[in-house]
């Protein structure tokens, strides 16, 4: 079937089987940051943005992307580096396999929540599992990153 959608800012026309999952389709198109950690929508590794909202690409048919804007980490390299530096400075990226889905959800959270508390952060990201870090280092990095973004915003406003 035909599928027309935006992938990381580029409008594309693709052929896709009706039963292909968005996750498999995106990897086929070279978006290798999108990972599969379970098959039951539990782990959050396959999180991508669809029209700015986080979705689990393992549980969504590729055809659902029709007319939508899909963004994977391949399309947010600069932002990933910016947040990733904070994660890396805690050593909390560890094996890295869960990082892309987790980080994409942080970007979604930034869009959705203004100045979230630690509790709100944990709640928002509850669906992103990580077996290496025990989450505490991740939380430290998010808090530091949000503080940095706030300062940056304030400085920009002052200028």
């Amino acid at each position: 079937m035909n599928l027309s959608f935006w992938l990381n800012g580029v409008y594309r026309h693709e052929e896709v089987e009706p039963d292909t999952m968005l996750l498999d389709f995106l990897r086929e198109k070279g978006c290798y940051s999108v990972k599969c950690g379970c098959e039951t929508s539990n782990c959050g590794l396959c999180t991508v943005l669809m029209d700015g909202k986080p979705v689990l690409s393992c549980s969504m048919l590729a055809l659902r992307a029709e007319g939508k804007k899909i963004v994977t980490m391949e399309g947010m390299q600069k932002e990933a580096e910016e947040f990733g530096a904070f994660l890396a400075d805690e050593g909390a990226e560890q094996c890295g396999f869960c990082n892309p889905g987790f980080i994409m959800n942080i970007f979604a959270m930034e869009n959705e929540l203004e100045d979230p508390t630690e509790e709100e952060i944990k709640e928002y990201l509850a669906g992103n599992l990580c077996r290496c870090s025990g989450f505490v280092g991740q939380t430290r990095s998010i808090l530091k990153y949000l503080e940095y973004k706030k300062t940056k915003k304030r400085e920009e406003a002052e200028e």
């Binding site: 290798y32 391949e74 390299q77 580096e81 990733g84 994660l87 990226e93 990082n99 980080i103």
Partner: peptide, 22 residues
Amino acid sequence: KPVRKKDAMALVTGKPVFTNDL
């Protein structure tokens, strides 16, 4: 010293570095 991991930036930016990516 709390040195940043040498592979950190590849991991946090989702580079294709795992078995199935290769």
